[in-house]
Amino acid sequence: MAMKTVTSLTLLLLLFAVLAAGRGTKISRELESSNDEDGICQLIVKTKGYSCEEHKVTTKDGFILSMQRIPTGRSGTKGGPKPPVLLQHGLISDASTWLALSPDESLGFILADNGFDVWLGNVRGTNYSSGHTSLGPNDPEYWDWSWDELVAYDLPAMFDYVHTQTGQKLHYVGHSLGTLMAFGAFSRHEVLSMVRSAALLSPIAYMGQMPSPLARAAADIFTAEVIYWLGVKEFAPGGGPVSKLVADICSHIDCSNFENVITGPNCCMNSSTPSLSHQQPTATKNMIHLAQMIRKGTIAMYDYGSDGDNNKHYGQATPPDYNITSIPNDLPLFLSYGGKDLLSDVKDVQTLIGVLSDHDPNKLVVQYRDDYAHLDFVYAVNAKQLVYSPLMAFFSSN
């Protein structure tokens, strides 16, 4: 039983270490050791010849989030007001997701060069959004959140800040967990007054048909729940005992291709060696919430495990659903998904599309890339031509 628990925990760590995350580049290692004055702007953006601003926004529950702004392209031409766009990364990652490749291949730089006012968000718990008005990462209460709080607090705080700074409604781009945050917020009519349109890459709403055997095994064995009950509130794949577990499993499995086993066979990323040893931390409670979605096939708020505890938090015995059908039918949505994606599975995305069947067909664009897997949407060397150009055309039409 103990060996089964350790093995399944390792599988879970490996699964979510690559879910919508970066590939452990030298840049991300530098980011971990840098401070706010020497951060993403200084290490990545300005070195590529772009202007960049560091911003801070505080959520209503006290988390201090880091944001970066790229106001102009490489030409530096300011011109008139530019349409703002907020880019939101996925799980166990940060804003460097959108900047990891060359300026001609990274969506953050591409948008800046094509006349957008680019804003990059970093959710709570990541290295650059680790501040809080009264708590620290060593306090268990600091990690008492799931993606429910990202929907209720982080995303609204970032939207409101950019809207206030620019005086304009925002375009939005999310990848993986960044899409789940959007679906949750839109379904509860959060931020709708501030959004122009949303592009959702590898959309995550329903996860019940996820075909990855490793993902299903890790969720079904309740491994995240086990470590939560043992008092491990911070889920940090890149250090401590977690790092040792990853190293142990990689001594028996060829981890050089392990991301493809989990995310699907990504067709079009460059050949640089991936690494699963360095990622951003998240809350163990967040991992439990995602595992609940895999097991149940629903999109609902966090399940506290008993009628009594759910009643205490929600006033009802079961967690409230996020009602996707309540998303306004005239909200412009661009969905792009891949045929080889094992996390944003084709069947689950088709379930989502079915739920959106009453959406105004003139406001819903669905793109299907048969050869793309989960990470291709942010790291493929041909994504500019195949995904980002249609995405920008969609923004321009809205």
Rank of each mutant, 00 (worst) to 15 (best):
L9S: 10
L9Q: 12
L14R: 08
F16T: 15
A17Q: 09
L19M: 13
A21Q: 02
G22Q: 10
R29F: 09
S33F: 09
D36V: 10
I40F: 11
K48L: 04
S51H: 09
S51M: 00
H55F: 08
V57D: 08
K60C: 00
G62S: 01
R69Y: 01
I70C: 01
I70R: 07
P71W: 00
G76K: 01
K78V: 15
G80V: 10
P81E: 10
L87I: 05
I92H: 12
D94H: 09
A95S: 15
S96T: 13
S96Y: 07
T97V: 13
L99E: 05
S106Y: 03
G108L: 07
D117P: 04
P137R: 04
P137W: 02
W143M: 02
D148V: 00
D154Y: 11
D154P: 04
M158H: 03
F159E: 04
H163P: 04
T166R: 02
T166Y: 00
T166H: 04
K169S: 08
H175S: 07
H175D: 03
A182I: 09
V191S: 01
V195H: 07
S197I: 03
A198S: 14
A199V: 04
S202P: 05
A205V: 11
G208N: 04
G208D: 06
M210D: 02
M210T: 12
L214M: 14
Y228S: 12
V242P: 00
D248P: 07
D248R: 12
C255M: 03
V261L: 15
S272R: 12
L276R: 12
T284M: 06
I288W: 08
Q292G: 05
M293E: 13
Y304P: 06
S306T: 15
D307R: 14
K312A: 15
Q316N: 09
P320T: 04
N329T: 11
L331S: 02
Y337W: 10
K340E: 13
K347A: 14
S357F: 05
P361T: 03
Y368L: 07
D371C: 06
A373T: 08
L375K: 07
D376R: 04
V378F: 06
A380W: 02
N382A: 06
N398H: 14
N398G: 00
